[in-house]
């Protein structure tokens, strides 16, 4: 885009010039408490809508299986902690095994995605090389095909490598930047960064690797945090690939294991399913709580002068 389109302080200031003066801003502060209260009330209401399903899950995890679907309220008449103990041990392996498997895959995926996608993104966002547009188009194209028509040929490829029933089909592609979502995400973030920064570094004689590591990466903390959070959650919740590639129970991930409680044609162990669903929600939730702190940290880092 052309430089003239870039918004800057002058633009904002110019647009704001017809606004009134500082004095009026001061008089507003009285009503701002009232506005803040209203804002919080709205947010709390919205939060209740958001959180209701979680509460329902928590309550259901303490109910006997037969009661779960007869009672939509959030009041507990019985308190059945046994769902947890039963659920933990009901499958071939203790549930910790599946949590562990999912953790390995999630951590591997995070490292893979952050490293490989940021490298590719830097190339697409900042480097002018032959074939860039066409490669970028191909990358977007890889996002558009549904997994269901790719799974059989993909399975054949991984079977050739001897990787069926191992974690490799779930982790290794992440190291090869196959998740175009994150490449594109990082491209957009990098292109949002002021170009003068790396131009200055270039003039100082820095190579692209130093620019990437010393200038771009530190500024991309919010994007990397986003990638980390999403990768963790998506790989944690990924059902289809895990279902297809992991065949023996000791390799199962959490979502595949959770299906072990269910039987759509007969009796399901709903109580245990809810209990273990909740247990498996904890790691993602904490991962999110941890990851989102870096969304805040970004602001300090981007306090560019």
């Amino acid at each position: 885009m052309t430089e003239t389109n870039t918004p800057d302080v002058q633009l904002a200031a110019a647009a704001a010039s017809d606004e009134n003066t500082v004095t009026e801003r001061r008089t507003r502060s009285g009503s701002s408490t009232a506005r803040s209260v209203i804002k919080h009330i709205l947010l709390v209401l919205a939060a209740i809508v958001m959180i209701y399903p979680l509460l329902w899950m928590v309550v259901s995890s303490f109910r006997p299986t037969a009661e779960i679907f007869r009672d939509t309220s959030l009041w507990l008449t019985t308190f059945r902690v046994e769902n947890y103990a039963e659920g933990w041990n009901a499958l071939n392996h203790p549930f910790s095994r599946y949590l562990w498997n999912s953790t390995i895959i999630a951590l591997g995926s995070i490292i893979g995605n952050v490293v490989s996608c940021s490298l590719a993104a830097y190339a697409f966002a900042r480097l002018k090389f032959k074939g860039r547009s066409i490669l970028f188009s191909i990358m977007l194209l890889t996002l558009m095909l549904p997994i269901h028509v790719l799974i059989v040929p993909q399975y054949i490829v991984f079977a050739q490598f001897g990787w069926i029933n191992t974690f490799w089909p779930l982790i290794l592609p992440k190291f090869l930047a196959t998740e175009a979502f994150f490449v594109f995400l990082m491209v957009q973030f990098i292109r949002g960064l002021p170009k003068e920064l790396d131009e200055a570094a270039l003039i100082d004689g820095c190579g692209h690797f130093r620019i990437f590591f010393n200038v771009i990466l530190p500024l991309m903390v919010p994007a990397i945090a986003t990638t980390t959070i999403f990768t963790f959650i998506w790989s944690w919740n990924d059902f289809f690939s895990a279902l297809i590639y992991l065949t023996s129970p000791q390799m199962f991930t959490v979502p595949v294991a959770l299906k072990g409680f269910l039987d759509s044609t007969g009796g399901s162990n709903w109580g245990a399913m809810f209990a273990m669903s909740l247990v498996s929600l904890l790691p993602v939730f904490f991962a999110f709580l941890f990851g989102q702190r870096f969304l805040i940290r970004g602001i300090a880092t981007t306090g560019i002068k």
């Binding site: 490298l119 590719a120 190339a123 002018k128 990358m139 592609p173 190291f175 930047a177 196959t178």
Partner: peptide, 16 residues
């Protein structure tokens, strides 16, 4: 530099 940075992605594209 472009192709160096793109190496992992290119391998993924070709192999997977």
């Amino acid at each position: 530099a472009g192709y160096i940075f793109l190496t992992p992605w290119l391998i993924g594209l070709v192999v997977i």
